[in-house]
Design a protein around this nucleic acid. Structure first.
Lengths: 201, 201
DNA sequence: AATAAATTTGACTCAAGGGTCAAATTTATG
DNA sequence: CATAAATTTGACCCTTGAGTCAAATTTATT
């Protein structure tokens, strides 16, 4: 029926959607087997395409990896903004944000990849910069909490690395549809995170 | 001088020492650039050798990666044994162990590598099994703590993954000789770990 | 149906890097 | 010193996998 929508927008949208599908599929493969162990042919086959077709949507394998990273960081940036609530203290905000992170990472499609080393030049710089931004935002929340007394005083950087580590590791062991649901993970992570840094006074 | 010690032991010891040096150097490179981005030629050059010489000490690149993993797990097993103290509750034991882990990982030479996916067959199975053993040991401590009341009740597995994540991430961001010392890291990690899981009742 | 644009592909090129080997070099031993 | 064993190497082979391209196929447009 309305299969033939012809707005000039349609073509681009179609292309963008397929491009995204390529990136998602590749990302899943990267997560499962690692960047270098997942070949373009495999990824293509998984989508019912030939390798050459992938290059119609994408410039290089490295670009795919780059996009995978950026997609997660975009999502995280979004969560940082959306969990910004006026009348909450540092700890409360961090709880919302951390829970949102955990929740997002347990949904299919988005995963924190480890292979930053496989990116070169600008790609790597940009990704590291983006990751740095996220860490900064989290660090600011922690510092805020230390000031308002909701978080105990300690080295904020180390605290944040500790917390981000748990998130990064999440994508290594967690598999969707397993014994534990994403919601449960998120709750457990928030609990453990906040107990670890809350001010016990 | 006593440069010419000739016990039949000497030759083997020499060989073993060099072999270990190869594995250490490779491990450092793997950590810095990732398994696939560190070439055998590079590793060899770093040791003032040719690539071919490496193969006198080692069967394959994969074997090196395997040994790197095993070395860490051996060390961890050692720490598990040495921190086993009779009259301590679960939380106290876990504090000792976790601190020992963090301390070890901030010393040069040993690092938790991420590239398990690059191992095939028995290599991978063994490494995963070893990692599993470590996680089990930690999980047992957590469960013990839940029974003796020192650790709050929750899903032990998730708790442990959270904690192990922080350790795994450690090797990504920590660089020896930086702003913070290994001891400080260890202390901070123990504090945050135990606050996160301690029983607040 | 004819034409043009968008997709897709098979077949190919090419570089990188792991691994091998016979020969050279160093080190120890009678 | 001569001989043997232990190390090391340069040159080479070979597989894997990323990326390319002209041609084929599918999808829209007139």
């Amino acid at each position: 029926m309305s299969r033939t929508v012809k707005s000039p927008f349609d073509r681009e949208a179609q292309y963008a959607a397929k491009r995204l599908a390529v990136i998602r599929a590749a990302g899943a493969a990267f997560r499962r087997k690692g960047y270098h162990n997942a070949s373009m042919v495999e990824i293509a086959k998984g989508l019912g395409l030939s390798k050459a077709a992938l290059y119609y949507y994408v410039k290089s394998k490295e670009e795919i990896l780059y996009e995978c990273h950026i997609n997660v960081y975009d999502a995280m940036d979004g969560l940082i903004k959306s969990t910004r609530v006026k009348d909450e203290n540092g700890l409360e905000r961090l709880q919302s944000l951390y829970g949102a992170f955990a929740h997002m990472l347990t949904r299919d499609g988005l995963a924190l990849l480890a292979d930053v080393d496989s990116l070169k030049g600008d790609y790597q710089e940009t990704v590291l910069a983006r990751r740095g931004k996220i860490e900064q935002a989290v660090t600011r929340l922690v510092e805020r909490g230390m000031k308002d007394g909701s978080i105990r005083k300690a080295d904020p950087k180390v605290m944040v690395f500790f917390l981000m580590g748990a998130l990064n590791w999440l994508n290594v062991w967690y598999e969707a549809g397993g014994r534990i649901s994403g919601d449960e993970i998120a709750d457990a992570f928030v609990a453990q995170m906040s107990a670890g840094i809350a001010n016990g006074v």
